[in-house]
């Protein structure tokens, strides 16, 4: 399996001089293509900071970070935006555009990347996730589970190389959490590389690699071969 993510001596700090806060690092790890990696850790452990760096939402202060052949540590905001267009992102609180319909939320993801997508393709994707009855609904009228499924559809519409998930089941009830978990497992089985930040230990059995963070560094990193 090819290595999709390489992090070497990766650091992130905020502020300057005496006010500098070292939020992350140094850390080193790799993620192989098609794997399911989960990042565990308590609040303030640096897991979300790491995911922000991996997903191009933020830039590292030091070190090397290569994702899908793209070196992120030297990219300026415009190039980072282009990088974000290539990946999929799922948030705990869905982060859907509130004034748009379900279908528009999915399609806008492609349009913002400058990619043309047909209404049929977007509709078909929404149907795969059981949202056929919600296609033209205002996003505000959807339940949490439905919203997260729309968010997943939005992240998948452009067939990303990698899917980053930040606590995707954190805001969902058990039933909806299970649905989302099943979807992600299915996607991974179909070959999608997934990196997920979570508190949900139910994901542990499905993970290929478990990175446990503490105080901004990797406390442990376990690889499960027989998942």
């Amino acid at each position: 399996m090819a290595i999709l993510i390489t992090a070497k001596n990766l650091k992130k700090s905020y502020g300057k001089g005496k006010n500098t806060v070292h939020a992350l690092g140094p850390i080193d790890f790799t993620v192989v293509e098609g794997s399911f990696t989960i990042i565990l850790g308590k609040s303030g452990s640096g897991k979300s900071t790491l995911l922000n760096l991996l997903s191009g939402l933020d830039s590292p202060t030091d070190g090397t970070l290569v994702v899908a052949g793209e070196s992120l540590n030297k990219l300026k905001s415009g190039k980072l935006a282009k990088y974000r267009a290539k990946i999929g992102l799922i948030f705990q609180f869905y982060n859907l555009l509130p004034n748009l319909s379900t279908l528009e939320n999915v399609m806008i993801s492609s349009w913002l990347k400058g990619i043309s997508v047909s209404k049929q393709d977007a509709t078909s994707l929404l149907k795969q996730f059981g949202l056929e009855h919600r296609i033209n609904s205002n996003i505000k009228t959807l339940s949490g589970g439905e919203k997260q499924r729309v968010a997943i559809c939005r992240s998948l519409i452009n067939k990303p190389a990698i899917l980053f998930c930040d606590e995707p089941t954190g805001a969902l009830d058990t039933a909806n959490g299970q649905i989302v978990k099943d979807i992600l497992v299915k996607l991974n089985k179909e070959g999608m590389t997934i990196v997920m930040v979570t508190h949900n230990e139910e994901f542990i059995p499905m993970a290929d690699k478990i990175i446990t963070m503490k105080d901004g560094i990797i406390e442990s990193m376990n690889t499960q071969i027989s998942k």
């Binding site: 939402l57 905001s77 935006a81 992102l89 948030f91 555009l97 993801s109 913002l112 990347k113």
Partner: peptide, 9 residues
């Protein structure tokens, strides 16, 4: 959200 979806400055 727009930026996270690939929108730039």
């Amino acid at each position: 959200i727009i930026k996270s979806l690939g929108g730039n400055d």
